[in-house]
Design a protein around this nucleic acid. Structure first.
Lengths: 217, 217
DNA sequence: TAGATTGTTAATCGATTAACAATC
DNA sequence: TAGATTGTTAATCGATTAACAATC
């Protein structure tokens, strides 16, 4: 039985976000029930892990039938905080910042991008879709006025820490760091690094130690 | 002492890629030596973890002085496969694909983006920087001709699996998946998900359970 | 030398997996 | 009912941390 008072471990939270994505796909297909085994198969896990993870939630499946897709999705939304909208700002109106601001998935979700900022006066004032790029000095004002919870850092590594400091000072509670450098933040500010370049390096290592064709033991 | 025959655990590889980034920054600053403690501080780890990680490598520090920055960087490059160039293709010439193709960091590294593909005939033929967008039917040819090791999936979730299948059939050994859906691949193909949307959900959870100001125990 | 820092072992911690009784 | 699937406990596995002797 789930105990909503306990903090859910990070690896479990990571998987829960994936379950939610998967459940939403199942809902679109009209599947009313899903078993731990089906979920596990779809995401490359064992059914044991899935059940263990779900046991962190305040939600029960039914023997022989599995989990109610809609019900589980609802609980996950609530637990992950995906049921209440979050305001987000993006700093950096370069290619990556633009791509994120235009990314359709956000508009369909509870994540609302309410402003894009850039330090370059030449970029300030231009439009990304329906969003106007604003100067950095507006940051504190916008963050406070819109109760912005998350700042997305989409600037080169060299300025990432400075931008982070500004966002933290403005009052955001979480940072999504798209730059490749590590960011230092006080403990009460959550930081998630996407590290795309690092992921590529991981891949390079993986294909080096286990090239295709060479079967592993 | 490092044993180059043993596979390095995934969490360690992840951190090694970060060490490399950090070391390269230190090199630019001209630092010749770095201690486990300094590295740990810069990345929010303990010095014990850093030493433990480095012990996987065939590299020794020197008591009282630490690690030779250049030497450690060199070994990391070799171990991670960052010393030999890798050819990469991007599938999807949308905002995200374009952003990646134009991303400066790659050109400065051993990662070489040699082609961008798109299924949309309206996009095929257009240019992204110096790269021309090619039709999907050219994929197998290009992958084989350039010995492409990694395919980057920058398409919407709905077509991600199809694109993955094409890339796998063409012969890539690794996939970087920027779509939010999970991808199934044979065991000899490495897959790394970036899951930007999932990272944002993680952040939502983090700021929900531990909002700023509410000090944790 | 004395002190700082590595390399490594052992202890702790936490996550995953296996197994199975409970149950629909 | 018989069989499938959950929920949960216990066992395993692996990663992190702590500690400290070796060493420059």
């Amino acid at each position: 039985m789930g105990d909503s008072t306990k903090r859910i471990p990070q690896p479990v939270v990571k998987r829960l976000t994936r379950y939610l994505t998967q459940l939403q796909a199942l809902l679109e297909r009209g599947d009313e029930w899903v078993s731990s085994d089906e979920l596990a198969d779809a995401m490359g896990l064992s059914s044991s892990t899935v059940r263990q993870d779900i046991s962190h939630l305040d939600f029960s499946g039914i023997s022989k039938r599995g989990y109610a897709t809609q019900g589980l999705a609802d609980v996950l939304m609530r637990v992950l905080g995906a049921d209440s909208p979050v305001n987000v700002v993006i700093v950096g109106a370069g290619n990556l910042g633009r791509a994120l601001a235009l990314h359709g998935n956000f508009s369909r979700s509870d994540i609302h991008i309410c402003a894009v900022f850039d330090a370059d006066p030449k970029v300030v004032g231009s439009r990304i879709g329906s969003i106007k790029v604003r100067p950095m000095r507006d940051l504190p004002k916008v963050v406070q006025a819109n109760n912005v919870g998350i700042g997305i850092i989409a600037v080169p590594g060299a300025s990432a820490q400075t931008v982070a400091d500004h966002l933290i000072a403005a009052g955001v509670a979480g940072l999504l760091n798209l730059a490749s450098t590590h960011i230092l933040a006080p403990r009460d500010v959550a930081v998630v690094d996407t590290r795309i370049l690092a992921s590529l390096r991981e891949l390079c290592y993986a294909i080096k130690v286990a090239p295709r064709g060479k079967s592993r033991t």
